[in-house]
Design a protein around this nucleic acid. Structure first.
Lengths: 142, 142
DNA sequence: ATTAATTATGATAATCATTATCAATAGGGA
DNA sequence: TCCCTATTGATAATGATTATCATAATTAAT
């Protein structure tokens, strides 16, 4: 997601960028493509804003998610992870390696025929999330 | 999933069916296709085993999941839901209605080409989960 | 600029889902 | 029956998240 688009979304939401919020957002921008937990964001962001509190991190991550600057996803591990939105298409495609836990993005969108099918049945598709559980090439033979 | 197959999985796992475990399993069998939280299972199962404790429910649900009798899924609401496995193919396809919250199963499997693509890149696909966020026909016009 | 009103923050308490602990109990086999 | 092990329910502990609240920072009005 471009900085310009981020900026636009924040303006639309009338969201002031305080130092703390800037620190959180910067961490997310510097970790494009990665999926960070709130605690991980806190640890990183404290390098920029040393007495940042966890409550502010949660508040900011949730707000940024509501502005569609971040995705908030539960990966079956009892907590949420946050990720900078990559485009305007709301596609969430992930591969999780069952050995090393690495979360890898995949770009392909091969779901349109399935969605068409649902729409023919009267649904209005808004978004989707696809998680593939796999062994990544590096872990496959271990 | 057939009772015969359930029985087989429990035997393979050397899992004794106590009254409490039976109550939990029966609730799941009677709610085929539905996605219940631990608290919901507790409430239902207490009709059969009145002083059942929540800890036993969690223990049983987790064990049954490990035997692949149940699926355990996080639907982005801060807790897990459990569901009787429907077949042996490990497919998790759901549509969540954004209005009424209803979780609807979909049977189609249109992901094989995507998985083939990943396998060509060296991944070993083990399982996947697809969640579609939509408005169901009944909620579409509200 | 000074003050008043609003908003944001950090510390911490509260909550919710889940897991761990542990004493009491229930089964199964010698 | 008695012993051994597995299971249970109550409850404490944990981890993630949310709510509360007094204080600090920002903005708006004068």
């Amino acid at each position: 997601m471009t900085d310009r688009l981020i900026w636009q979304r924040l303006e639309e939401g009338n969201y002031r960028l305080t130092q703390q919020r800037q620190a959180v957002l910067d961490v997310m921008r510097e970790n494009r493509g990665r999926h960070l937990s709130a605690e991980e964001v806190l640890a990183e962001a404290r390098k920029k804003a040393p007495n940042l509190g966890i409550a502010t991190v949660y508040r900011t991550l949730d707000k940024l998610s509501s502005f569609e600057v971040l995705y908030k996803t539960a990966f079956d591990e009892g907590k949420y992870r946050y990720e900078l939105c990559e485009d305007e298409h709301h596609r969430h495609h992930h591969v999780i390696c069952l050995s090393c836990g690495q979360i890898i993005e995949i770009e392909e969108d091969l779901l349109s025929s399935l969605e068409k099918h649902l729409e023919n049945k009267g649904f209005e598709v808004v978004d989707h999330q696809l998680i593939i559980y796999a062994k990544c090439p590096g872990c496959k033979c271990k």
